[in-house]
Design a protein around this nucleic acid. Sequence first.
DNA 1: CTGATCGTTCAACTATTATGGAACTATGCC
DNA 2: GGCATAGTTCCATAATAGTTGAACGATCAG
Lengths: 106, 106
Amino acid sequence: MPGARDLPHPDAATLVLTDVLFALSDPSRLALVRRLAQGPLEVAACQPTGGEVPKSTLSHHLRTLREAGVVRNVPEGRQRYVSLRREDLDDRFPGLLDAVLGGNGE
Amino acid sequence: MPGARDLPHPDAATLVLTDVLFALSDPSRLALVRRLAQGPLEVAACQPTGGEVPKSTLSHHLRTLREAGVVRNVPEGRQRYVSLRREDLDDRFPGLLDAVLGGNGE
DNA sequence: CTGATCGTTCAACTATTATGGAACTATGCC
DNA sequence: GGCATAGTTCCATAATAGTTGAACGATCAG
């Protein structure tokens, strides 16, 4: 089975609120989630605008978001696409994402 | 001015979203916030139901919530009342508190 | 004033999280 | 196959957060 590059993702039904809140409580992760709200990005494009961050650091943040169930990370050819799990989050925690994405605060 | 036992509270307008999310991302703090949604409590009543926690530990959690702007802590005679800053939070982050208090997740 | 009570702050320790270099895996191109 | 690319994982280190006993401050009762 060659294409076994899939990473584990929690089921929508089992998402834990405190884990989601924690994942979103970091400014750089929150900024990324806001960008992902406008559409999927490949991992390289998840770099904070302007500054460069080591790949391992970025990967760690993506992992935190993924394990909390905030983003999905799927291989696509040689790269990976990161996308917001908007429907899953809306299903399980209605209104939360909208509130977090809504204009205010950093 | 004798009754100067007031603790510092951030202004409603300056609340930082990531700080609020972080304060809510701890299960015991979130559980407390849910209880506070039903009305103010004195500090001693903020103990987790069942287990006893040292006063200093409880005080530390209250501080995290207070400094994020989630709760207000006001002296009242010999004790203190802890209350949810619901209006301030709703003003600044509309829908957030409702989403977090809403049934789902732990 | 003395003592008791309520709760915060301080200081020390532990545990969790963040960071980043190096090694590794998988894919695609030649 | 050989090599470059994309990104994760591993490991070590630094930084941050949680936990707790003890000291402290304020208030109230007698």
